[in-house]
Protein backbone atom coordinates (compact mmCIF):
# COMPACT_ATOMS: atom_id res chain seq x y z
CA UNK A 1 0.00 0.00 0.00
CA UNK A 2 2.93 2.28 0.66
CA UNK A 3 3.69 2.70 -2.99
CA UNK A 4 0.17 3.70 -3.93
CA UNK A 5 0.11 6.32 -1.23
CA UNK A 6 3.52 7.76 -2.02
CA UNK A 7 2.75 8.14 -5.70
CA UNK A 8 -0.33 10.12 -4.82
CA UNK A 9 -2.33 8.66 -7.67
CA UNK A 10 -5.38 8.95 -5.46
CA UNK A 11 -6.35 9.72 -1.92
CA UNK A 12 -4.61 7.35 0.42
CA UNK A 13 -7.03 4.56 1.38
CA UNK A 14 -7.48 4.89 5.06
CA UNK A 15 -10.28 2.79 6.49
CA UNK A 16 -10.80 -0.77 5.47
CA UNK A 17 -14.16 -1.26 3.87
CA UNK A 18 -14.31 -5.04 3.65
CA UNK A 19 -12.73 -7.39 6.15
CA UNK A 20 -12.66 -11.05 5.25
CA UNK A 21 -11.90 -13.83 7.66
CA UNK A 22 -13.45 -17.05 6.44
CA UNK A 23 -13.16 -20.78 6.05
CA UNK A 24 -15.41 -22.52 3.66
CA UNK A 25 -16.07 -26.07 2.54
CA UNK A 26 -18.61 -27.75 0.34
CA UNK A 27 -19.15 -30.99 2.19
CA UNK A 28 -15.74 -32.62 2.40
CA UNK A 29 -14.20 -30.22 -0.12
CA UNK A 30 -12.21 -27.53 1.64
CA UNK A 31 -12.25 -24.43 -0.54
CA UNK A 32 -11.02 -21.71 1.81
CA UNK A 33 -9.02 -22.29 4.94
CA UNK A 34 -8.61 -19.28 7.17
CA UNK A 35 -8.57 -16.91 4.28
CA UNK A 36 -7.94 -13.45 5.69
CA UNK A 37 -7.58 -10.14 3.92
CA UNK A 38 -9.18 -6.75 3.76
CA UNK A 39 -10.11 -4.37 1.03
CA UNK A 40 -9.62 -0.67 1.65
CA UNK A 41 -12.29 1.93 1.21
CA UNK A 42 -12.49 2.76 -2.52
CA UNK A 43 -9.78 0.31 -3.41
CA UNK A 44 -9.75 -1.48 -6.75
CA UNK A 45 -8.61 -4.98 -5.83
CA UNK A 46 -7.88 -7.60 -8.45
CA UNK A 47 -7.96 -11.29 -7.51
CA UNK A 48 -6.35 -13.99 -9.56
CA UNK A 49 -5.69 -17.68 -9.03
CA UNK A 50 -5.93 -21.08 -10.67
CA UNK A 51 -9.24 -22.34 -12.01
CA UNK A 52 -11.38 -23.95 -9.33
CA UNK A 53 -9.49 -22.38 -6.42
CA UNK A 54 -12.59 -20.71 -5.07
CA UNK A 55 -12.73 -17.20 -6.50
CA UNK A 56 -16.39 -17.33 -7.42
CA UNK A 57 -17.16 -18.88 -4.07
CA UNK A 58 -15.25 -16.03 -2.42
CA UNK A 59 -17.29 -13.42 -4.28
CA UNK A 60 -20.54 -15.17 -3.34
CA UNK A 61 -19.47 -14.98 0.28
CA UNK A 62 -18.41 -11.35 -0.09
CA UNK A 63 -21.84 -10.56 -1.56
CA UNK A 64 -23.55 -12.12 1.44
CA UNK A 65 -25.45 -14.65 -0.67
CA UNK A 66 -23.42 -17.60 0.57
CA UNK A 67 -22.80 -18.24 4.24
CA UNK A 68 -19.18 -19.29 4.88
CA UNK A 69 -18.71 -22.45 6.94
CA UNK A 70 -16.80 -20.39 9.49
CA UNK A 71 -15.95 -16.76 10.00
CA UNK A 72 -17.58 -13.77 8.41
CA UNK A 73 -17.30 -10.84 6.09
CA UNK A 74 -17.56 -7.38 7.61
CA UNK A 75 -18.45 -4.31 5.60
CA UNK A 76 -17.73 -1.09 7.47
CA UNK A 77 -17.49 -3.22 10.60
CA UNK A 78 -20.88 -4.88 10.22
CA UNK A 79 -21.65 -8.34 8.82
CA UNK A 80 -22.46 -8.10 5.13
CA UNK A 81 -26.18 -7.88 4.36
CA UNK A 82 -27.29 -7.47 0.73
CA UNK A 83 -30.58 -5.97 1.91
CA UNK A 84 -28.77 -3.07 3.56
CA UNK A 85 -25.44 -2.80 1.74
CA UNK A 86 -25.56 -1.68 -1.86
CA UNK A 87 -23.70 -4.46 -3.62
CA UNK A 88 -23.54 -5.30 -7.28
CA UNK A 89 -22.19 -8.40 -8.89
CA UNK A 90 -21.17 -9.10 -12.48
CA UNK A 91 -21.34 -12.87 -12.73
CA UNK A 92 -18.95 -15.13 -14.58
CA UNK A 93 -21.77 -17.06 -16.23
CA UNK A 94 -24.54 -15.57 -18.38
CA UNK A 95 -27.03 -14.00 -16.01
CA UNK A 96 -29.52 -11.95 -18.02
CA UNK A 97 -33.16 -12.75 -17.25
CA UNK A 98 -34.55 -14.21 -20.52
CA UNK A 99 -38.10 -12.94 -19.99
CA UNK A 100 -37.03 -9.29 -19.73
CA UNK A 101 -35.79 -7.16 -22.58
CA UNK A 102 -32.44 -5.36 -22.40
CA UNK A 103 -33.86 -2.22 -20.79
CA UNK A 104 -35.80 -4.09 -18.10
CA UNK A 105 -32.83 -6.35 -17.39
CA UNK A 106 -30.67 -3.30 -16.72
CA UNK A 107 -33.41 -1.83 -14.50
CA UNK A 108 -33.66 -4.95 -12.28
CA UNK A 109 -31.42 -3.70 -9.46
CA UNK A 110 -33.04 -0.27 -9.39
CA UNK A 111 -36.46 -1.91 -9.19
CA UNK A 112 -35.44 -4.14 -6.29
CA UNK A 113 -33.91 -1.12 -4.53
CA UNK A 114 -37.22 0.71 -5.14
CA UNK A 115 -35.62 3.69 -6.86
CA UNK A 116 -38.17 6.29 -7.99
CA UNK A 117 -39.26 5.82 -11.61
CA UNK A 118 -37.86 9.07 -13.13
CA UNK A 119 -34.48 8.49 -11.50
CA UNK A 120 -34.54 4.87 -12.61
CA UNK A 121 -35.32 5.85 -16.22
CA UNK A 122 -32.45 8.32 -16.30
CA UNK A 123 -29.94 5.92 -14.78
CA UNK A 124 -30.89 3.04 -17.05
CA UNK A 125 -30.75 5.20 -20.19
CA UNK A 126 -27.41 6.62 -19.10
CA UNK A 127 -25.72 3.28 -18.45
CA UNK A 128 -27.20 1.66 -21.58
CA UNK A 129 -25.63 4.47 -23.59
CA UNK A 130 -22.27 3.84 -21.92
CA UNK A 131 -22.22 0.11 -22.67
CA UNK A 132 -23.35 0.81 -26.23
CA UNK A 133 -26.73 -0.94 -26.25
CA UNK A 134 -28.94 2.06 -27.07
CA UNK A 135 -30.28 0.43 -30.25
CA UNK A 136 -31.03 -2.86 -28.53
CA UNK A 137 -33.14 -1.70 -25.58
CA UNK A 138 -36.22 -3.65 -26.67
CA UNK A 139 -34.37 -6.81 -27.68
CA UNK A 140 -34.71 -9.94 -25.61
CA UNK A 141 -31.56 -11.77 -24.46
CA UNK A 142 -31.97 -14.55 -27.04
CA UNK A 143 -31.83 -11.90 -29.77
CA UNK A 144 -28.44 -10.48 -28.78
CA UNK A 145 -24.93 -11.89 -28.76
CA UNK A 146 -23.08 -13.38 -25.81
CA UNK A 147 -20.86 -10.32 -25.46
CA UNK A 148 -23.89 -8.05 -25.57
CA UNK A 149 -25.54 -10.11 -22.84
CA UNK A 150 -22.45 -9.63 -20.73
CA UNK A 151 -22.64 -5.88 -21.32
CA UNK A 152 -26.27 -5.99 -20.17
CA UNK A 153 -25.10 -7.70 -16.98
CA UNK A 154 -22.36 -5.09 -16.51
CA UNK A 155 -24.85 -2.25 -17.07
CA UNK A 156 -27.26 -3.83 -14.58
CA UNK A 157 -24.52 -3.94 -11.94
CA UNK A 158 -23.42 -0.35 -12.53
CA UNK A 159 -26.94 1.08 -12.74
CA UNK A 160 -27.29 1.00 -8.97
CA UNK A 161 -24.73 3.18 -7.24
CA UNK A 162 -23.22 0.28 -5.39
CA UNK A 163 -20.72 0.78 -2.60
CA UNK A 164 -19.15 -2.59 -3.29
CA UNK A 165 -18.80 -3.90 -6.81
CA UNK A 166 -17.87 -7.53 -7.38
CA UNK A 167 -16.84 -8.61 -10.85
CA UNK A 168 -16.12 -12.22 -11.81
CA UNK A 169 -14.10 -12.30 -15.05
CA UNK A 170 -16.60 -9.92 -16.56
CA UNK A 171 -14.86 -9.27 -19.86
CA UNK A 172 -13.81 -12.74 -21.05
CA UNK A 173 -16.60 -13.00 -23.62
CA UNK A 174 -15.79 -9.65 -25.23
CA UNK A 175 -13.55 -8.98 -28.21
CA UNK A 176 -10.30 -7.10 -27.62
CA UNK A 177 -11.47 -3.57 -28.61
CA UNK A 178 -14.74 -3.91 -26.69
CA UNK A 179 -12.90 -5.35 -23.71
CA UNK A 180 -10.48 -2.42 -23.67
CA UNK A 181 -13.33 0.03 -24.01
CA UNK A 182 -15.20 -1.65 -21.13
CA UNK A 183 -12.04 -1.59 -18.99
CA UNK A 184 -11.67 2.14 -19.59
CA UNK A 185 -15.39 2.62 -18.94
CA UNK A 186 -15.23 0.74 -15.65
CA UNK A 187 -12.19 2.80 -14.61
CA UNK A 188 -13.96 5.96 -15.71
CA UNK A 189 -17.06 5.16 -13.66
CA UNK A 190 -14.92 4.16 -10.72
CA UNK A 191 -12.81 7.34 -10.86
CA UNK A 192 -15.91 9.46 -11.25
CA UNK A 193 -17.36 8.07 -8.07
CA UNK A 194 -14.93 6.05 -6.01
CA UNK A 195 -16.11 2.79 -4.51
CA UNK A 196 -14.69 -0.52 -3.48
CA UNK A 197 -14.18 -3.02 -6.25
CA UNK A 198 -13.16 -6.67 -6.14
CA UNK A 199 -12.36 -7.84 -9.62
CA UNK A 200 -11.56 -11.47 -10.47
CA UNK A 201 -9.49 -12.08 -13.58
CA UNK A 202 -7.08 -14.59 -15.04
CA UNK A 203 -5.65 -11.94 -17.29
CA UNK A 204 -2.58 -10.40 -15.60
CA UNK A 205 -2.42 -7.55 -18.05
CA UNK A 206 -5.97 -6.69 -17.10
CA UNK A 207 -5.26 -7.06 -13.38
CA UNK A 208 -2.25 -4.75 -13.53
CA UNK A 209 -4.03 -2.30 -15.80
CA UNK A 210 -7.04 -1.97 -13.49
CA UNK A 211 -6.06 -2.74 -9.92
CA UNK A 212 -4.51 -0.81 -7.06
CA UNK A 213 -3.47 -4.19 -5.81
CA UNK A 214 -3.42 -7.72 -7.17
CA UNK A 215 -4.00 -10.65 -4.84
CA UNK A 216 -2.97 -14.08 -6.09
CA UNK A 217 -4.63 -17.14 -4.57
CA UNK A 218 -3.24 -20.67 -4.41
CA UNK A 219 -5.20 -23.70 -5.48
CA UNK A 220 -7.57 -25.30 -2.95
CA UNK A 221 -7.63 -24.60 -0.13
CA UNK A 222 -7.16 -21.09 -1.33
CA UNK A 223 -4.64 -18.95 0.52
CA UNK A 224 -3.08 -15.71 -0.49
CA UNK A 225 0.25 -16.56 -2.08
CA UNK A 226 1.13 -13.07 -3.27
CA UNK A 227 0.00 -9.53 -2.95
CA UNK A 228 1.29 -7.06 -5.50
CA UNK A 229 0.81 -3.31 -5.23
CA UNK A 230 0.40 -1.48 -8.48
CA UNK A 231 1.49 2.05 -7.62
CA UNK A 232 1.06 3.45 -11.12
CA UNK A 233 -0.91 6.56 -11.92
CA UNK A 234 -3.88 6.17 -14.21
CA UNK A 235 -4.35 6.05 -17.12
CA UNK A 236 -1.73 3.37 -17.23
CA UNK A 237 0.38 2.60 -20.22
CA UNK A 238 0.74 -1.17 -20.68
CA UNK A 239 3.90 -0.56 -22.70
CA UNK A 240 5.69 1.42 -20.00
CA UNK A 241 8.68 -0.09 -18.24
CA UNK A 242 7.05 -0.14 -14.79
CA UNK A 243 3.92 -1.78 -16.11
CA UNK A 244 5.75 -4.60 -17.87
CA UNK A 245 7.93 -5.10 -14.81
CA UNK A 246 4.95 -5.56 -12.48
CA UNK A 247 3.25 -7.81 -14.96
CA UNK A 248 6.33 -9.98 -15.25
CA UNK A 249 6.49 -10.28 -11.47
CA UNK A 250 2.88 -11.45 -11.39
CA UNK A 251 3.55 -13.89 -14.21
CA UNK A 252 6.47 -15.39 -12.28
CA UNK A 253 4.31 -15.92 -9.23
CA UNK A 254 1.50 -17.44 -11.29
CA UNK A 255 4.02 -19.73 -12.91
CA UNK A 256 5.10 -21.29 -9.65
CA UNK A 257 1.45 -21.70 -8.63
CA UNK A 258 -0.12 -25.01 -7.94
CA UNK A 259 2.57 -25.45 -5.35
CA UNK A 260 0.91 -24.99 -2.02
CA UNK A 261 2.78 -22.59 0.19
CA UNK A 262 3.72 -24.10 3.53
CA UNK A 263 1.58 -23.02 6.43
CA UNK A 264 2.73 -19.75 7.95
CA UNK A 265 4.97 -19.10 4.97
CA UNK A 266 5.65 -15.43 4.56
CA UNK A 267 3.70 -14.05 1.68
CA UNK A 268 5.95 -12.37 -0.85
CA UNK A 269 4.95 -8.76 -0.93
CA UNK A 270 6.19 -7.02 -4.01
CA UNK A 271 6.42 -3.27 -4.16
CA UNK A 272 8.09 -1.47 -6.95
Amino acid sequence: MTGAASLGARAAPSTSKVEVDISHRYGPLVVHEELRFSVMENEFLCVSGPSGCGKTTLLDILAGILQPSEGQVLIDGRPVDPKRDRISFVFQEPSTLPWLNVWDNVATGLRIKKVATPVMRRKVDEIIEIVGLRDYETYYPHQISGGMKQRVAIARAFAIDADLILMDEPFVSLDQPTRERMQREVLHIWEHRRRTVVFVTHNLEEAVFLGDRVVVLSSKPARIVAEIDVPLARPRNPLSHEFTHIRATCADIMHTLGVRPPRNATIPKVTS
Partner: peptide
Amino acid sequence: KVALVFGA
Protein backbone atom coordinates in the same frame (compact mmCIF):
# COMPACT_ATOMS: atom_id res chain seq x y z
CA LYS B 1 -28.44 -14.97 -7.25
CA VAL B 2 -29.03 -11.91 -9.42
CA ALA B 3 -32.00 -10.98 -7.27
CA LEU B 4 -30.38 -11.91 -3.95
CA VAL B 5 -27.33 -9.70 -4.51
CA PHE B 6 -29.61 -6.68 -4.86
CA GLY B 7 -31.27 -7.66 -1.58
CA ALA B 8 -34.53 -8.93 -3.07
